[in-house]
Design a protein around this nucleic acid. Structure first.
Lengths: 232, 232
DNA sequence: CGGCATCCGGGAAGATACTG
DNA sequence: CAGTATCTTCCCGGATGCCG
């Protein structure tokens, strides 16, 4: 039996930048592969291990376990057991963890201009919804106060657009002013790709309920920044 | 001889997240270890290989070579040869590369609140100066229009504070209104650690030239956000 | 089934030595 | 000084299997 785990006694000797720069310390915390994407998947609310994994095609179970441990040790998230009726364990960002959203937004805004960005790859519900928060143009939205429902696969989310800001959370959608039902990639095509709503409905891949004129306005609130000219 | 480098025919098979999310693509570009810190070192102007390396204690030459190649392939930076008198090669961010600064700022602002952040580690001139741009409180600075010089080791930088924003670039400092000469860590102690300027001068680790009352005001313009409560 | 440990192969990171 | 070559170490990714 050499199973003496000298590895870590609660304190990790993980590889670190020895740098006082706060950004470098941020990379110590969330710079590992997959770490920020795990946080992205928790950004709209707690999730279970399997749901995170399903949202991140390509991550393996042991890596996800590792990232969750590291992020918990860093104070970014906590594991919590739901009330006995459904006593499942979920992972939830700490209040400070939720405040990491501007990192994802800065990264997303910048990379959206990349010459190599490929928007045709698969996209998760969370990353699509977060992209709306990121790309919303407050000046175009500032005089709107509406509730927008999203039915993305099994899950429903309710967005509250008010004062030029957009809050989104998992929620029922019966009292939304307008509701979009489609795969995330389809909605992205409508909002970022300029695909007309009617065409997508005619193709049977999108359904709009409620205020249709609001729907056509809503999809224009998220302008994409110009691409950088292709590589020399 | 199996030295057939099948590796890459100009196209890289680098490990990528297959994800349409722009943030995920951003991680494809700058998510590798050291990548963002290399960009940080170039954020205030072009640098040579050796200078980047000297600013990043712990990076090894081959990793730096690799990161520079990858970032160049991603359109983030270019290599450029200076005019014949000093025909040295330097690395310089592209205009789009410079626009990545908000990523560093979001990361830094967030991680500055970490319970595990250790400000006593070594700090480079660039990361200190960038931290000023990050942490400047525009409301405290909005009615100031001054030139601030920094002598950090061999290099000098000139900061222009105006309209609540701070521009910084390598520059001579003879026409600054006030000048700080000290190691970056010392200046950080004065600005973020609340060390009195007089005490640091008495200790012989800091020298202030020019408008001294401006100096005492300047160091109050960069409030630190509150730390998160230590781990449970 | 969800969560986590273990083993293994490949590849990136780290350290050192070497070359133009 | 600016990288390149080489070797070691360790992380990532996939598979399997244990256990509640």
């Amino acid at each position: 039996m050499k199973s003496e785990k000298i590895t870590n006694e609660g304190e990790s000797r993980r590889r670190r930048y020895e740098d006082a720069c706060a950004a470098a310390h941020g990379l110590d915390l969330v710079g590992d592969r997959w770490a920020l994407l795990v946080m992205r998947e928790l950004m709209l609310g707690p999730k279970r291990f399997g749901d995170i994994r399903a949202s991140l095609p390509g991550i393996s179970a042991n890596v996800l376990t590792q990232r969750l441990e590291d992020l918990e040790a860093g104070g970014v998230l906590t594991r919590r057991k739901l009330a006995p009726p459904a006593a499942v364990q979920v992972y939830e960002l700490t209040p400070w963890g939720y405040q990491a959203e501007p990192i994802l937004q800065a990264l997303g805004r910048w990379a959206a201009r990349s010459p190599h960005h490929d928007p045709t790859l698969p996209i998760s519900a969370n990353s699509f919804l977060l992209s709306l928060r990121t790309m919303l143009d407050p000046s175009r939205a500032k005089d709107l106060d509406v509730r927008v429902g999203f039915r993305l696969g099994e899950e429903t989310f309710l967005g509250r657009l008010r004062g030029g800001a957009l809050d989104i959370a998992p929620h029922t959608i019966e009292d939304a002013d307008v509701t979009f039902a489609a795969a995330p990639a389809i909605l992205a095509a409508a909002i970022y790709g300029g695909q007309p709503i009617e065409a997508l409905e005619a193709a049977g891949v999108l359904r709009v309920e409620g205020d249709r004129s609001l729907a056509t306005r809503f999809v224009t609130l998220f302008p994409l920044p110009p691409r950088v000219e292709p590589p020399v």
